[in-house]
Each structure stands twice: as C-alpha cells, then as structure tokens.
C-alpha cells in the first residue's frame, strides 16, 4: 500500500449552518483501482462526505488531494475529467432523453460553444452499453423507473471517462437482481478499466464479496475502516449504528447482517 492514494481526504470539516458540524475531522484514502463502500447510520454525514470528495461542496477546513495534488487547485473542467459523481436521485423537471443526459458527461471535453461531435456520441453509446442500457437511449428520463434513472446516471458518469467514480446510494431503487448486476458492473469496471469506485450504501449485504474496502462513518468521522471481513462484525457494527441488537453470521464468502431492534 505504498503507492500514492488516488483520492485522499485529510481532516475534513464541514457544516451547512454554523454551529452544527456535519463532518468533523474525516480522513480517508482511496487506493487506485479499488472498490470501496462508505457505510453509516442515517444523518452521520455519508452523503456530505462524498459530495465533498466530488468537489460539489467545499470543505471549511482540511484538504482533499487527487494523486497528491490539491483538488481545490484543479480547474473545474480538469476535475470533471478525473472524478465523476452520481447523486442519490435527480430531480426531473424536463423530459430529457437518456442519451441527452449521458451526453452531458462529455461536457468536460468540449467547449462552451460547441455541440458534442460523433466521437462524443460514440462514447456516450459505449457508456450506455457498458451498463446494459443502450435500449433506453431515446426514452425520456421522466418515463423511466427509479432504477433505470440510476443506471442512466451511472452511464453519464462513465461517459466522463473518469479515474474515480463516486456514487451516492446507487442501488437504493434497484431490485435484488439488478442490485447484484449493478455491483458486478462496478467490479468489472474496476477489474477491466482500473476504475476507482467509492459507493455510499445502506445495504450492507451488497458489500461482500466484491468490495475491497469499507469506511464506516460515525458522527462525521471515519470511525473504522478496513477490509469488509474486518469491519462487518457485531462489535463494530453495533457501535457504528448505535444498535446493540445487530446480529451477524458468516456464510461462505459473505457476512449476513440483520437487526433485531424493536
């Protein structure tokens, strides 16, 4: 683990309103070509942390480094070529087609006054194919299901050709089958393209066996981190979720997790 982390957060602090800190001293490092998860209870700061890493929010204190260089010093366009971010859900006011949404991923590669060219359209189609959604290209996103919209948003992020992909609860709207397929797609992108992926998730059963690393957030800090098998145990999970009724059981290459609270 001696190589420079692809993306690194050092002692991040952030608040939306003064006096109510959301992130207080969070540090983490993503190894190149790794697939990692951020877990934690509701309101612990997971989404805020990933938005900070994506450059959507600016930390009040601390710094974020991309391949050793300060993220804040990187021009926005350069940042968008390296880091792609998919928010939890996108508000849909207008019936853009899926292709139009995916083509926006080519923005960092074209100028303000130019339309996307044939090469951009080809990249967008490849991104849709990579997530198995080329059949959705001409459909208005307002007519797609929540899960299909998430897949289109992932294709848009891939069209950015980033080195690092940050996803906020990407599988929340997916059924069991598509959830598994989604994780396999992420693992394939890591294995074939060397993409570094960080996923915020509530679904602990999603993580094993394909994820490399877990960062557990508690009260705006990275409370624990390590390989999934090291973090997904009764003692740590009870502390992370403040729930003594969490139970775990090892089953082949994965840990089954449930809570008997209430």
């Amino acid at each position: 683990m001696s190589q420079i982390p692809l993306l690194e957060a050092r002692d991040l602090h952030f608040h939306y309103e003064a006096g109510t800190p959301v992130i207080c001293g969070a540090s983490l490092a993503l190894e190149p070509g790794s697939l990692s998860a951020i877990i934690g209870s509701n309101g612990c700061g997971k989404s805020t942390l990933i938005r900070l890493l994506a450059g959507v929010l600016v930390p009040k204190r601390g710094e974020i480094r991309f391949q050793g260089a300060r993220l804040q010093a990187l021009p926005r366009r350069e940042r968008a070529r390296r880091i792609a971010y998919v928010p939890q859900s996108i508000a849909l006011a207008f019936p853009f087609t899926a292709m139009e949404v995916v083509l926006t991923g080519r923005t960092p590669y074209s100028s303000r006054l130019r339309f996307e060219n044939a090469a951009d359209r080809r990249k967008a189609l490849e991104a849709l194919e990579a997530v198995g959604a080329s059949h959705l290209a001409a459909r208005p996103v307002t007519e797609l299901s929540g899960g299909e919209r998430q897949i289109v948003a992932l294709a848009r992020a891939l069209a950015q050709e980033p080195a690092c992909l940050l996803l906020d609860e990407p599988s929340a709207a997916l059924d069991l089958k598509h959830r598994a397929a989604f994780v396999r797609t992420l693992a394939r992108l890591r294995d074939r393209q060397g993409l570094t992926v960080l996923v915020v998730t509530h679904d602990l059963n999603l993580v094993e066996p394909l994820f490399d690393h877990i960062f557990a957030i508690r009260c705006g800090q990275v409370f624990a981190s390590g390989k999934p098998a090291e973090v997904l145990n009764h003692a740590l999970l009870s502390a992370i979720y403040d729930d003594p009724d969490i139970r775990t059981r090892r089953l082949e290459d994965r840990t089954l997790i449930w809570s008997e609270a209430g």
Binding site: A54, V56, A80, I83, Y85, P87, F94, T104, P108
Partner: peptide, 10 residues
C-alpha cells in the same frame, strides 16, 4: 438536469 450533477461537471 440536476444541480449537483452540474456542479460535478464543472
């Protein structure tokens, strides 16, 4: 399309 997506695209 989306505010956060726009921000992440620069």
């Amino acid at each position: 399309i989306d505010e956060d997506t726009a921000a992440s695209l620069g």
